[in-house]
């Protein structure tokens, strides 16, 4: 087993990346995801036009050298709006998923490790949140406080917490009975130590997979809410509002729908590939065993 060719010790993250890029699916996912991230971060430099600058004389054009994806009914450059729309999508997705992971971890671990009554209380909370359909819940909140990016973030985050929390709770429950936890206790580990050093790394892998798979859902949800006019407010570019405009103007031009749909599809494919590949890589036991 051990020989001179044994790879040099890498950090856990390095190890995961190393195996990820050797899996074609993972590599493809990673490239798509990085491209989306890069275009969102670099939007001000990449986008050829101001995404909200009106240019009515040039409205509803097809693709051309000047406008790669044509223009919309107000003459705004669609390509620039797609790029900036990615920024909005990630502005919604990242804090949403980040917050959902944070609270999901916190509540899930407390529920899984803590006393019975606390577990029951937290599960009740999860069930209550989940009993509202996300879109209905969002519509209700938006009707109350008006549409805004922050409302969308908050609503999607809150409704996503139970998804993460339940996974964490189940994993924690099965892990806390594991013999290695007793073994660690017998060597003097305290409860916070067991949670941080031993439970967390066991939970983080599956959670990362879940998050990667969940990002397209959140982006789609944002698009859906914006499509319904409940999300991002009009001049701000969003894939959802692009789709909405495209839908209304379908008789005039197909390009808006296509421009709004492609990034959504790419996001879904990219993150799903990444999630699938991560699934095989976060578990050291599966790592490097003849990837697909």
């Amino acid at each position: 087993m051990t020989d001179a060719s044994l790879p040099k010790p890498r950090s856990e993250l390095g190890e995961i990346l190393y195996h990820l890029v050797r899996d074609p699916l993972g590599l493809a996912g990673l490239i798509i995801v990085l491209a989306i991230l890069a275009s969102a971060v670099l939007a001000p430099w990449i986008a050829p036009y101001d995404p909200i600058a009106l240019n009515v004389p040039d409205r509803l054009q097809g693709p051309s050298a000047a406008h790669l994806m044509g223009t919309d009914q107000l003459g705004r450059d669609t390509f620039s709006r797609v790029i900036w729309g990615g920024r909005v999508a990630l502005q919604v997705a990242l804090p949403t998923i980040g917050g959902a992971i944070f609270f999901g971890l916190l509540l899930g671990m407390i529920a899984g490790y803590g006393p019975r009554w606390l577990d029951n209380l937290i599960v009740l909370l999860f069930d209550t949140i989940r009993s509202f359909p996300t879109v209905m819940f969002a519509l209700a909140v938006v009707a109350l406080v008006g549409p805004s990016l922050n409302t969308v973030i908050l609503v999607i985050m809150v409704t996503s917490i139970p998804t993460y929390g339940r996974v964490v709770r189940t994993l924690t429950q099965s892990l806390k009975e594991a013999e290695f936890i007793t073994a660690e206790k017998s060597l003097g580990a305290s409860t916070p130590r067991i949670m941080a050093v031993h439970l967390l790394p066991n939970v983080l892998g599956p959670l990362a997979v879940l998050a990667a798979m969940d990002i397209p859902t959140v982006v789609g949800l944002e698009a859906g809410l914006s499509f319904l006019g409940m999300g991002v407010k009009p001049p701000t570019p969003s894939w959802g509002s692009l789709l909405n405009d495209g839908y209304n103007l379908i008789r005039n031009t197909p390009w808006l729908i296509i421009a709004g749909g492609i990034p959504l599809i790419l996001t879904t494919v990219g993150f799903t590939f990444l999630g699938e590949a991560l699934r095989d890589v976060v578990d050291p036991k599966l790592r490097g065993k003849g990837g697909k």
């Binding site: 594991a178 013999e179 290695f180 007793t182 073994a183 660690e184 206790k185 017998s186 060597l187 003097g188 580990a189 305290s190 050093v197 031993h198 790394p201 066991n202 892998g205 578990d283 050291p284 036991k285």
Partner: peptide, 24 residues
């Protein structure tokens, strides 16, 4: 007790396949 465990008193368990954290 926690201060004693692992320093003054230590333990080895029956099933070696189960006594280590699998992801570390």
């Amino acid at each position: 007790m926690r201060a004693l465990r692992g320093t003054q008193i230590s333990m080895v368990f029956q099933d070696p396949m189960q006594t280590h954290n699998p992801v570390l």
